[in-house]
């Protein structure tokens, strides 16, 4: 069986600056990948590459064995941290929009029986994300959590092959965030989704997904901080990972974060990390997949 997403020797550079280097990754349908890493480590760039908003400098990304289209399309759903929903449409219309755009290339509107079908489908999806009571409300009248629920429904109604989540709960209160975790977990199971989720919150990454990808620099040159990009330094089946691994990764990530203004320690840190990695994999259990570690 071909993997849902196959990434081969992916590089992304902006002029002199290398953002991502040498990433090889194979993600099966049904995986829930959470992506963590220090700020500016390229995890958002990685998501934009998957989305098609950016193209790789080298290497390729295959979706179900086919090269990815170089612009966003309906096979990939996205929920951003903000601005994912359309302020001029009610919740129901927001969710219907995708069905209407797909069904009516010219007018972008459906009529008659087709419209009723789209309406029912959208209403059912809103019900599934817990917005059954707010069909006619405009996004402005919804709380942050409800807007993210709406954005999820909007994407899911298109049945995308992969769902990309860019820090979707970053702006929410902790209590609401827990509710959203439950919701996303349930939607993932019920709809057979393949998910990539960026998060700042390592705990969230650890408990929500089936596979944790940590992005970090593999090499570091303090004199030329832009010369090396980030790769995948940990690739763990987190369902079986233990607390100690979590703590170690947390320490690694926060060290990288602290080193953002480059110093001599940076070199040390990046030298010690590859050594730490196999142990981390062992802690996590036999199933740890080896990521793109050594260039």
């Amino acid at each position: 069986m071909t993997a849902r997403i196959e990434i081969r020797n992916l590089w992304k550079e902006y002029g002199e600056q290398v953002v991502l280097e040498h990433i090889n990754l194979s993600v099966a349908a049904g995986d829930f990948c959470t992506i963590v890493g220090a700020s500016g480590c390229g995890k958002t760039t990685f998501l934009r590459l998957l989305l098609g908003e950016e193209s790789p400098s080298r290497g390729e990304i295959l979706l179900d064995g086919e090269p990815l289209t170089a612009e966003p399309g309906p096979d990939r759903g996205i929920v951003f941290q903000r601005y994912s929903v359309f302020p001029h449409l009610s919740a129901l219309r927001n969710v219907m929009l995708g069905l209407e755009l797909r069904g009516a290339p010219l007018s972008g509107r459906l009529f008659g029986a087709k419209r009723r079908r789209a309406r029912d489908e959208a209403a059912a999806m809103l019900e599934a994300v817990g917005l059954g009571h707010a069909l006619e409300k405009y996004p402005d009248a919804l709380s942050g959590g409800m807007q993210q629920r709406l954005a999820l429904a909007q994407s899911l109604v298109m049945h995308p092959r992969i769902l990309l989540l860019d820090e979707p709960f970053g702006a929410l209160d902790p209590g609401i965030r827990a509710d959203m975790h439950q919701l996303v977990g349930r939607l993932w199971r019920e709809n057979d989704l393949t998910v990539f989720m960026i998060t700042h919150d390592l705990k969230e990454g650890f408990h929500l997904g089936t596979r944790l990808l940590v992005f970090d620099k593999l090499r570091h040159d303090p004199d030329a901080p832009r010369a090396y990009g980030a790769g995948v330094t940990y690739d763990l089946p987190v369902a079986r990972a233990d607390q100690r691994t979590l703590e170690r990764i947390e320490a690694d990530v926060s060290r990288s974060e602290a080193l953002a203004p480059q110093s001599a320690e940076a070199e040390q840190a990046s030298e010690t990390r590859p050594a730490a990695q196999p142990t981390a994999g062992a802690d996590a259990g036999a199933g740890a997949r080896k990521g793109a570690t050594t260039p």
Binding site: R76, F80, Y83, F86, G98, A151
Partner: peptide
Amino acid sequence: EQLIKAQTLAG
């Protein structure tokens, strides 16, 4: 984000 989202909705 809105324009990207619209593209993922087949627009």
